[in-house]
Design a protein around this nucleic acid. Structure first.
Lengths: 144, 144
DNA sequence: AGCTAAATGAAAACGATTTTCAATTGGCAG
DNA sequence: CTGCCAATTGAAAATCGTTTTCATTTAGCT
């Protein structure tokens, strides 16, 4: 689990400056346990600091993504890429196609499949995306 | 496997008209066994009919996607959604992060994982995305 | 306190996709 | 075969999310 402070130190270590804007962005991201789109993060930060530029959000999110502190959800017909909070450990998503709720899970044993694919295709596999889609409990109940 | 004719009939059945433009788009898509972006499909169709509008490509691809005759690849940092050919059968992708080559594979036994997730989360799971990323044989060789 | 490279915000640029709208056309009805 | 009308088309403009540009500000070392 990354605290705001830890992330700040990480940024400093990498030579990035700690600006008030970045502090607010970190505060926004770490305060929420849900997946958020860029726009949602922007909105949240704006509540604190209406003067902040959307560009700054993008730039900061880019840095955080590059450092592996954030990751993205790849789901949905239009393929909008949703940013989400702290992965660190390898994990996956279960996404409700009705309300967008995202549940994380970590264990996925794909090593057997990966081995077979490596053998068949001679690819050097270095990662995978695994996402389940469905309807969450709430949406099932609501539909009745 | 869908032939051009079969797709035309499917469209007709659904009340869509068969126009010369749509014929050319179908010809382009069915003639290629590779994954193509919208732009690539557009280019290909343009070789046949330079007058065709990109809009028409988009509209036709939307229809075909809705009818389940096409699907998309969800991979890559910027999450560009690549359109590709005829899925019909459930399948997955192995994508080279360097050159973009896509290899399909069909078998993925995720039923155990799916069962466990259903039990844990009470989601009604109805699908999944599984994509491996890596470097293809060519790119590995080239890098040496 | 002063300096400098990094960071910021506004505006413009951008690429992919969608909407608008007037003109055209496929395909059924007569 | 002909006419009609809703569906389809293409051009242009609009839109969306993201990136670039650039002049101004600022974090953080000296």
């Amino acid at each position: 689990m990354y605290t705001e402070k830890k992330i700040e130190n990480l940024l400093r270590q990498q030579g990035y400056k700690i600006t008030p804007q970045r502090r607010k962005i970190l505060a926004a991201i770490t305060s929420v346990n849900e997946h958020m789109t860029t726009a949602e993060i922007y909105d949240k930060v704006c509540q604190e600091d209406p003067g902040i530029g959307l560009v700054t959000i993008y730039r900061t999110l880019d840095i955080l993504t590059e450092l592996g502190l954030l990751c993205e959800v790849h789901v949905g017909g239009n393929c909008r890429s949703y940013l989400m909070r702290r992965p660190v450990e390898h994990h996956h998503h279960l996404v409700c196609s009705e309300c967008g709720t995202v549940v994380d899970f970590t264990d996925c044993d794909l090593s057997g499949l990966e081995d077979r694919l490596t053998k068949d295709t001679h690819f050097e596999i270095n990662g995978h995306i695994l996402e389940f889609t469905g309807r969450c409990r709430n949406c099932i109940v609501r539909a009745k």
